[in-house]
Simulated scan of single mutants.
Amino acid sequence: MAAKPIYVELDIQTDMETLWKATQTPELHQQWDLRFTEITYMPRSGDREPQRFHYRTRIGFGMDIAGTGETKAKTNLLTGERISGLKFGSPQRISLIRSGSGYWKYSPNGGSVTFATRYTYDTRFGAAGRWFDRCLFRPLFGYATAWSFDMLRIWLEKGIPPSVSIQRALMHYFSAGLLALLWVYQGLVPKLLFPGGGELAIMQAAGWFPGGEKPALALLGASEIGIGLLAAAAHRQAGVYIVQAALLLLLPAIALARSPELLQAPFNPLTLSGAMAGLCLLAFWSRRELPQAGRCLRKPRGSGKEEEPKWHPYTSGR
């Protein structure tokens, strides 16, 4: 059974020429498309010839995947739509993708342009390669395509360069992820798994729940785990950070009011809450205008059939 083609569609509030330039100029294209590190056009003899190119993608550990391709454009004079057909492939033995094809379609839509792509490819490594592609690589490749499309939208609509979007995304996911991890750790390890390590003694010394310190500590631990999971799930929502900031101010204030000597400890509620509050502020600030793959459609509108347009430059013969 053939693998399902990757389809991504997004409305972008821009004009046709601006979008065309951002997607058809190699120096601009490689800035927003996570799938490519470098794209180089090759010389061609005339406008009727397909535009051939080399591409390269860094995969880490000092290794690159390189390949070649060609693209050919066509305009539908009746509707104003444009389509850019694509063929690509890599001769490298380490490349999962052997060869593929697809298109980019540009459809005028009032004050915006509907930008869509559909592509698929053949894989190497036999049944193992097909299984790996279907279960992991193709979903990630589709996600990267959609995320890149939204990064392009932010660039053209908001004027935020892709490099800034990538830096902001790394900052946000690191700070939000570490903040959520700290909440879960503080609830699970010192309160539920090892309460005798000091948390129980602190609660007993405070005298908040005489005789009921253990269940109270367990409830507090479960609550902190819940906050961490909620913070991870709703990391784009401003209200989540407002709640966290309030708790990070309230909890250490209560503890220190009842037991001021806690300030003498090397790792006390004030230092921990202060560090977490800093992460909270960083995640709150960096959440703005983040690219989201979920903004893109992953199936065509209407019938949902993933068929190539009849006037595709490589199949129409016109």
Rank of each mutant, 00 (worst) to 15 (best):
M42A: 14
M42E: 15
M42H: 14
P43G: 12
P43W: 11
R44N: 11
R44P: 03
R44T: 10
R44F: 08
R44L: 11
R44H: 14
R44M: 09
S45T: 12
S45G: 12
G46D: 15
D47N: 15
D47L: 14
R48K: 15
R48E: 15
E49T: 14
E49A: 15
E49C: 08
P50F: 12
P50M: 07
P50K: 01
Q51H: 09
Q51D: 10
Q51S: 04
Q51L: 11
R52H: 13
R52W: 05
F53D: 05
H54F: 14
Y55R: 02
Y55A: 09
Y55V: 01
R56F: 01
R56T: 07
R56C: 08
R56D: 03
R56A: 13
T57E: 01
T57D: 01
R58T: 09
R58D: 14
G60T: 12
F61I: 11
F61C: 09
F61P: 00
F61K: 10
G62Y: 06
M63H: 13
D64Y: 14
A66P: 03
G67P: 02
T68W: 09
T68E: 15
G69V: 02
E70I: 00
E70Y: 04
T71S: 14
T71E: 07
T71L: 07
K72W: 06
A73I: 02
A73Q: 02
A73V: 08
K74M: 04
K74W: 04
K74F: 05
T75N: 03
N76Q: 00
N76S: 03
N76E: 00
N76D: 14
L77N: 06
L77R: 11
L77S: 10
L78F: 04
L78R: 11
T79R: 06
T79M: 07
G80N: 01
G80K: 02
E81W: 03
E81S: 10
E81C: 03
E81D: 13
E81M: 00
R82Y: 05
R82F: 01
R82P: 06
I83T: 01
G85L: 00
G85E: 02
L86R: 05
K87P: 10
K87V: 03
K87W: 06
K87I: 08
K87Y: 05
K87Q: 13
F88A: 04
